[in-house]
Design a protein around this nucleic acid. Structure first.
Length: 204
DNA sequence: CCACGGATTGGCT
DNA sequence: GCCAATCCGTGGA
């Protein structure tokens, strides 16, 4: 009876720690989005860290603006931005108030709501494995599959719309560290982390 | 006010 | 592997 529930929502305290610690620990956690009767969930399998105090690629590098202000608040909120005229990307804000750090969710492995994700991505149900692995293997794909957009900017991750469930910490051997993808500045920082051999990562 | 270019994706060579 | 699509935030005039 006194048994602890295995899936506990991550608290504010988890998110307000230092950027790279949170980034690595986010791997393996379960991301959940609930909207009415529709529930999506998936395992976080690939992330990238951004820190405006030292990192020219971070959106917070040149100071606070309307677009990035949520990133300057305390950890545990969702920073959603729009890019390339077509795609939204989701970030988990980390650290203490004023720091301007966040972790980009680059890929998840779907658990719940796969049929709905497929309709969001392709306008129809899945056809084959290739489409299955292409559902959420990129930051824009994750947002499209889970219907995350501008209206989710600033969502509190300790609330009940979008949140993360705790899972056992991965070992260092399960985590691959590499340079980040798709940026032109601070390209050498080894701030991309993904789960070794997972088929849902955006690329090697 | 206007010009620039992007934390991407998907389609074509 | 290469590149166009397509908005809008940002920064300079």
């Amino acid at each position: 009876m006194n048994q602890k529930l295995p899936y506990k929502k991550l608290s504010r305290k988890f998110y307000t720690r230092e950027l790279l610690t949170v980034a690595k620990e986010l791997l393996g956690k379960i991301m959940v989005k609930v909207e009415g009767k529709v529930k999506f969930s998936g395992i976080i399998v690939e992330v990238e860290a951004y820190d405006g105090s030292v990192d020219e690629a971070a959106h917070t590098f040149t100071g606070k603006t309307k677009r990035n202000e949520i990133m300057f608040g305390p950890g545990g909120f969702l920073y959603v931005y729009f890019t390339y005229g077509a795609h939204f990307c989701s970030n988990v804000v980390t650290g203490k108030n004023g720091q301007g750090t966040a972790v980009l969710i680059r890929a998840i492995e779907p658990i719940d709501g796969i049929i709905k994700m497929s309709n969001n991505r392709y306008g129809r149900n899945l056809l084959n494995d290739k489409e299955k692995y292409n559902l959420t293997s990129g930051p824009g794909k994750v947002c499209q599959a889970l219907s995350i957009s501008k209206k989710h900017y600033g969502v509190d991750l300790t609330g009940d719309k979008i949140f993360l469930l705790d899972q056992p910490k991965l070992t260092n051997g399960q985590i691959v560290v590499s340079k980040r993808i798709g940026i032109k500045k601070s390209v050498d920082l080894p701030w991309r982390f993904y789960i070794k051999d997972n088929p849902y990562i955006s690329r090697k």
